[in-house]
Design a protein around this nucleic acid. Structure first.
Lengths: 185, 185
DNA sequence: GTCTATATGTTGATAGAC
DNA sequence: GTCTATCAACATATAGAC
């Protein structure tokens, strides 16, 4: 028996996965409890409300993203960092084609409700944009703000279409196109 | 009293608007009935299920899109058609920043459920992609399939970020960037 | 800390009067 | 065709035993 219970962690992991696959609204607390193998009533010992679980999921997603872009910055060549980021996306293309980008699909869903969660969601994608802008600035590309936004818009649009069309192949092709564009800047 | 009731039409109009603003799952039949000023129980005279309403909304959205791209094709210059399309998007930037693209936000939401609706959603964005591909083909641009996909991905990514960040200004800027890119092809 | 049982509220859907 | 009343199912949340 662990010194501290791992139930909370299990619940968050289950919620992350289920929210990605089904969306926030369609995911019930019973779903989460069941996937985490925790009795339903016990959920409320760890979280006051369903929204609080989502808040924690959002925070973890943000940290995942920060870890990912941190891993992409292993050296000081900003364009190589962006390329490594594209490579990571390609590796995820099957899951993205099935369930969409875990960050932006949740953002769009939460944006349609009036709740503190809605504003929280904004932060995750902003992290991504800020990082891209910084890479372009370091690379000496003209108008780094606009170019960074453009880069993330292209990446997100590609994932959106891949999800809607359930097509990982075209996602990979399109990411290659974005990589080629990077080389011309 | 009209020869045929306009209640069904009112219900669809209300559903279209509410689903765009709140999403499909958060929109209740009571919401729809209330906005259409139709008693709740009466809804089931016109539609068997909630999903059936959504099906009709999807169909109308598709027709709206076909009408829009039809209007953009007033002459035979394919690049001018694409530019007119971008202009239409700019005119919608405030609403997009608030509620997202009415087509793709619904597609992404429906993609996360297992229902015939999920596959129906795919068709709407495919209409858009097919049109763009056709314009690039007519314009003699190399690899029109890839370029058409790229064009819609950029447009959709731009709207996704505009929605998440609630920022119509950056949406307009980014659409201009896409227009400039069009000129270089 | 953990769990069962259940309260409470909402929603999709139906029955049946008019 | 229109509407009121209501059902049945489900989801969030709580009470309280252990």
């Amino acid at each position: 028996m662990p010194r501290t219970s791992d139930k909370r962690e299990k619940l968050v992991t289950a919620a992350k996965s289920l929210i990605h696959r089904q969306g926030f609204h369609r995911t019930t607390l019973a779903d989460i409890a069941s996937e985490a193998k925790v009795p339903l009533g016990n959920v409320y010992y760890y979280f006051k409300t369903k929204e609080e679980i989502c808040e924690v999921v959002l925070e973890e997603r943000k940290q995942d993203l920060q870890r990912l872009i941190g891993d992409c910055c292993r050296n000081s060549n900003p364009k190589a960092n962006l390329k490594r980021f594209l490579r990571c996306l390609m590796d995820d293309s099957n899951q993205v084609a099935e369930c969409g980008c875990p960050h932006s699909t949740l953002c769009q869903e939460l944006r349609k409700i009036s709740s503190p969660l809605s504003d929280r969601a904004e932060g995750t994608l902003q992290v991504l944009i800020d990082w891209a802008v910084e890479q372009f600035r370091k690379a000496g590309v003209p108008r780094p703000k606009s170019t960074g936004f453009e880069f993330i818009a292209r990446v997100q649009g590609t994932m959106l279409l891949a999800h809607t069309l359930h097509d990982p192949r075209r996602m990979k092709q399109q990411i290659k196109v974005i990589g080629t564009w990077l080389d011309t800047l």
